[in-house]
Write a protein that binds this DNA or RNA. Structure first.
Lengths: 288, 288
DNA sequence: ATTTATTAATGCGTATTTTGCATTAATGGA
DNA sequence: TCCATTAATGCAAAATACGCATTAATAAAT
């Protein structure tokens, strides 16, 4: 059954006149007659009660007019919706990102996305560092924003930002500026650091930092969660090293002392992911 | 857009394999390929992500699979429903009938209808005698059961039943049997009779009855409603003449004395009414 | 009663679309 | 590197849809 036929039927059901209807839908009266006839045959019922003079809907025709009108407009809506999905204007994308950037570049990225594609549904999730790539490969997330470089097969990555590491100390602490730091003064500190992850490029940078001062830090606590670390530093339990993105989190009683070490933020996605939503987002993020 | 195409799409979306699907839906792989292609063109989007080796739904395709499945089954249901309307198995019919038969032949008729066509919706209405034909012609009712013969243009009628008139008296009344009646004894009675309607064949029969006894009755009250008349007789306010169908109404303290006058019950409908529901009901009522 | 105007159905030739067959081209696995 | 698999495509045949002209039925006008 052709939907076009149903449209012809609806037009005729409105006009109840073959000639006028045929003209309106841009076919000849003969074609219209046959379209209606074949529609009737296909359904095995009569749609119109007609003689050579008058056209009138049968009860079944009246019923179908009402139902088909609804059904067709539903279909039209569905097709529009599908088109939007095709164009990547509609759909869902799940993004994992580290806590550190949730107050710095994430708001910018999200603002850009929602402005360009207001119909998009974005799910933000927190994923442990070690799970990020697994989740990406297993379609649990579509986009992973990380500080780690990966050379995994089938995953594409691109740097979108880089920030400096910073030493985080309470306001009252004796460290005020970078120049206050020395191997001696650092050795005396208790450190709160991120979980040391084998092969994580982020923890390698931190290790490189300590190596530049040529000592092994006294780490009394590891945590994967920046906000936990910040809370502990604020309580005076130690000092930390964090990306200076955390400065954007409101922490009035802390001091961030920038260090000459940079940490990159990368965006990772499946190379074979053809979801148009992803393509749009990547275009948006790299576009300018 | 042909619904058949959508069915092909759904089959392929299930199998994700052109050859197997083509075999299943009884066309060649080449035809299926082209059907999907033209569907994609028509919608302006891609349904499958495919190379020479694998077939996979795109996000839009996945969305449409779900939606179309629902929509198609809805359409199928609608078409079945319409078919039932066409066959007169489904729909609404409005019937007017006199109060007198609501406990005699109406239950039989209604039982027959609901048994044969359980999906039918029947509306019963009470209409004043004088309005019956008007309502019928103006599509306010579809079937009028009356005691009056009509020769109205465009209305068809057929007798379905006839019952006797009966004299209705309180049990204590001196009239016990038909033989008790005489012109003299009748003259002494007070009568409660139906509204005298010009040209109504029913009131003509009652007039004929009195003429056979050769007197003019003392009518102290007219009412169109049989149940009102019965209530008045029970209170001892007079005696009445009613169709003996009223015997089926529970009236323990009344006596019905059958009279040798018959009154017909007719069923009336519009001659140009092609509603299949009507045809079915007429067939049922006259069928046996 | 007869004529006229209107209008849905239909016969027929043409144009368009769809189909099947055979072949091609791409791809994953041995 | 070769082979098996499988979606796409060229082409001719079949099916379908279309428009034109005509027909048949009917309501309105005379």
């Amino acid at each position: 059954m052709d939907l076009q036929r149903i449209k012809y039927f609806l037009a005729l059901a409105e006009q109840l006149h073959y000639w006028k209807t045929a003209e309106k839908v841009n076919i000849t009266q003969s074609a219209l007659t046959r379209q209606i006839q074949s529609l009737e045959n296909e359904l095995g019922l009569q749609l119109f009660e007609r003689n050579k003079r008058n056209v009138k809907l049968t009860p079944a025709g009246k019923f179908l007019k009402e139902k088909w009108e609804v059904e067709l407009s539903e279909l039209e809506y569905i097709h529009q919706f599908a088109k939007q999905i095709h164009l990547g204007e509609r759909g869902t994308i799940t993004i994992a990102h580290p806590d550190s950037i949730s107050a710095s570049i994430m708001p910018d990225i999200l603002a850009k996305i929602t402005q360009a594609f207001p119909q998009l549904q974005i799910k933000l999730v927190q994923v442990l560092y070690e799970n990020q790539l697994d989740f990406l490969k297993n379609y649990k997330i579509d986009l992973a924003i990380t500080r780690d470089i990966t050379s995994e097969q089938g995953i594409k990555s691109k740097k979108i930002y880089s920030d400096h590491l910073a030493l985080v100390v309470p306001l009252a602490h004796s460290f005020k500026r970078f120049e206050d730091l020395s191997t001696e003064s650092l050795k005396a500190q208790k450190f709160i650091l991120p979980t040391k992850d084998e092969g994580s490029s982020y923890s390698e940078i931190i290790q490189a930092l300590f190596k530049s001062y040529d000592f092994v830090p006294d780490v009394f606590l590891h945590s994967e969660f920046g906000s936990t670390i910040i809370a502990l530093v604020r309580k005076g339990l130690g000092i930390a090293i964090l990306p200076d993105s955390y400065m954007h989190h409101q922490s009035p009683d802390l001091r961030f002392i920038p260090l000459p070490f940079k940490t990159d933020i990368l965006i990772n996605w499946r190379a074979d992911d053809h979801n148009p939503v992803l393509a749009n987002i990547l275009k948006l993020v790299f576009g300018d």
